[in-house]
């Protein structure tokens, strides 16, 4: 948890003080890459909660999903087809699914811990 707060603070400060901006024409692709990265992040968190986290799977998914999503958006622009919508829908759905599973896992863990404590008492 401390690591996440630390990452959040460093990320915000670094983002604000970095001397460059994302060019406006690439802004759309970066947005899609962020959604894909968020999906991977929540997937990783879920895997960690399920005790089956794998670094290689997480990092490869994190990078590849972001790149492929941005590439899809770019390709869609070139073809005149809103392909980025596909990425938004897929990653958006998965983010909500992961969040729901994580919520359940956290709740179950919390309830189990409480039951254990009650049994010990």
């Amino acid at each position: 948890m401390v690591l996440f707060v630390f990452a959040l603070v460093i990320g915000v400060v670094a983002g604000f003080y970095l001397p460059w901006q994302i060019p406006l024409i690439y802004s759309k692709y970066v947005s899609i890459a962020i959604v894909a990265a968020l999906d991977s992040l929540f997937g990783g968190l879920r895997a960690e909660l399920e005790k089956n986290f794998d670094n290689r799977v997480f990092l490869s998914g994190f990078l590849l999903n972001a790149v492929i999503a941005a590439f899809f958006a770019y390709l869609g622009d070139r073809l005149g087809l809103d392909l980025y919508l596909a990425a938004v829908v897929v990653f958006g759905t998965r983010i909500f699914q992961n969040l729901a599973i994580m919520r359940r896992l956290i709740l179950n863990n919390y309830l189990k811990n409480r039951e254990r404590k009650q049994e010990i008492e």
Binding site: I10, G11, Q21, V30
Partner: peptide, 21 residues
């Protein structure tokens, strides 16, 4: 946890940059 936090940091940086744009 470090890798996940590191990914989170990258996402936050990207989000802030995107926000600035």
């Amino acid at each position: 946890s470090f890798w996940i936090a590191f990914s989170f940091l990258i996402i936050v940086v990207l989000l802030v940059l995107q926000f600035k744009t």
